[in-house]
Design a protein around this nucleic acid. Structure first.
Lengths: 218, 218
DNA sequence: TCTTGACGAGACGCAACGTCTCGTTCCATG
DNA sequence: CATGGAACGAGACGTTGCGTCTCGTCAAGA
C-alpha cells in the first residue's frame, strides 16, 4: 500500500505526518478533463439518479480514464459537490443576498418563492438531493457541503433578519439563527421527504407564520 | 401496495388476468427466519451503516438463504422499514399521543425533549437515518415510510394543537399542519443534516418560538 | 401417503468497485 | 531543442455484492 520509492518531494522535512501517497500536482492538472468530468456527473445524476450514478459511467461519458477521477476526488459525492457549486448551483451563495426593501415579509416571501421554484427545477434538484443524501450518510462530506452551500444560505436569512431587528421590525430578543431555521427547516423537510407541495402558497404561509412570532408584542 | 416489481415471465398461455409471478404464500412463511432477518438487519445497519449494508451480510448473519430475503422484500430499505417498525421504533406511533395537561407549551416541550433524546440514541438513529436517506431517493419507499411512521408523528402534533385551538389557547386561524411542520421541520433539518446540536435548549427554544406565533393577539 | 412450496445453501453471470500497469501527451527545466 | 517526469486515456485485474437460479430438505395440507 505505502510505497515510498524516494523521499517525499512534496513534504518539507518537518516532523509532520508521513505524506500518505504521492500527492498529485494541481499545477499539472488538465482543466479540460476536469470540466468534462464535472459536466458528465451533472448529466448523469439527472439521468439515472444518485443511487445508480457510477464512477465508471462518469469516466466513460467524460472520455476520461477512471484514474483521473480517483486521482482528484475521494468519492462520487465529492465530484458532484464540485460540479454543483461550479455550475452555478451555489449561484445564490456567495454574492447574493436576501433583498432588503424595508418590507421584511415581502423580501422573505420573494426569496422563498424563488427558492421553491429552484428546487422544483430538475436540473437543480437532482444534484442537490444527491448531495443532501450523501451528506446525511457522511459527516465529513456534510461539513463540506454545509460550508460551501447550506450554511451560506442560512447566513443570508440571518443577515436580513438582523437588519429587520435593527429597524425594530422584529423583537430584540429574537434568536436570528433559530428564526432562519424556522424558515428553512419546514421547507427542507417538505422538499427532501416529499411531505407536501413546494408551492408559493406554502412558502407564503410559512413566512407569515414565522413572522407572526417575531413581531414586537402589542 | 407493493406488487411484484418485475413483469411475470412465467405465465401459462391463457389470455386471462396476468397472475403475478408465483407469489409466495404468506401462510407458509417461516416466522423464525423472518425475525432473524429483521434482527440481523438492525444489528448490521448499526455496525456498518446503511451504505455498506448488504443483503448478503444480512442473510449470513441471520443464517438464512438470500432467496428468503428476496422472496419477501423488494429492497434492503424495505427490510429495514419492517425491522424498525416492529422493533418498537414506531412505538410512539400508533397508540401514543402528545400528552394533554392543558399546558400546551409544557406538553410540546416534553415531547420534543423526549424526541431529541430518542434521536440521539444510536440504536434508534442508525435505522431511522437509513430510512430517511432511502426515502429521499425513492418516492415509493418514501410514501410507505411516511404512512407508517412520519405522518403518524405529525398527526400527533396536529391533534394536540387542535385541542389547544379548541381551548382558545391559540388563534382560530392557525394552520395546524403548518404549525406542526414548524415544530418538526427545524428539528428534522438539524438532525438529518447535522446542522447543530439536538439538545433540550434547542427544542425548548423552538417550541417557544413557534408558540409565540400561534397565540391570540393582544 | 403424496404433493407442494418455503427453506438453507450456494453456484452463476454480471456490474462496479478501486488499484494497477501500459503507452502517450504535455510541460518545465536544463 | 532535448529530455525527464507527471498527468493522461485506456483498460486489465481481482474483489465484492447483486439478483437469479438450482439443489436437496422439510413441514403441512390434500
Amino acid at each position: 500500500m505505502s510505497r515510498r520509492p524516494s523521499p517525499d518531494p512534496d513534504r518539507p522535512g518537518d516532523g509532520g505526518a508521513p505524506a500518505a501517497r504521492r500527492r498529485p500536482d494541481p499545477a499539472r492538472r488538465n482543466a479540460r478533463s476536469r470540466a468534462a468530468i464535472l459536466g458528465a456527473s451533472l448529466q448523469l445524476v439527472g439521468e439515472v439518479g444518485y443511487a445508480r450514478l457510477t464512477i465508471e459511467a462518469i469516466a466513460a461519458r467524460a472520455g476520461v480514464g477512471k484514474q483521473t477521477i480517483y486521482r482528484w476526488w475521494p468519492s462520487k459525492a465529492a465530484v458532484l459537490l464540485d460540479a454543483f457549486t461550479e455550475s452555478g448551483g451555489g449561484e445564490g451563495a456567495e454574492d447574493a443576498a436576501v433583498p432588503d426593501t424595508g418590507d421584511l415579509g415581502a423580501d422573505l416571501r420573494a426569496v422563498l418563492r424563488a427558492t421553491a421554484d429552484e428546487f422544483s427545477d430538475p436540473e437543480f434538484e437532482a444534484p442537490y438531493r444527491a448531495l443532501a443524501v450523501a451528506g446525511a450518510q457522511d459527516a465529513e462530506l456534510s461539513r463540506e457541503f454545509d460550508a460551501r452551500l447550506a450554511d451560506i444560505g442560512t447566513e443570508l436569512y440571518v443577515a436580513r433578519l438582523r437588519s429587520a431587528r435593527e429597524a425594530g421590525q422584529i423583537r430584540d430578543d429574537v434568536d436570528l439563527r433559530l428564526a432562519a431555521e424556522m424558515l428553512t427547516g419546514p421547507f427542507f423537510q417538505r422538499w427532501l421527504a416529499r411531505r407536501g407541495p413546494l408551492d408559493h402558497a406554502f412558502t407564503d404561509a410559512l413566512v407569515d407564520a414565522v413572522l407572526a412570532g417575531l413581531r414586537p408584542r402589542g
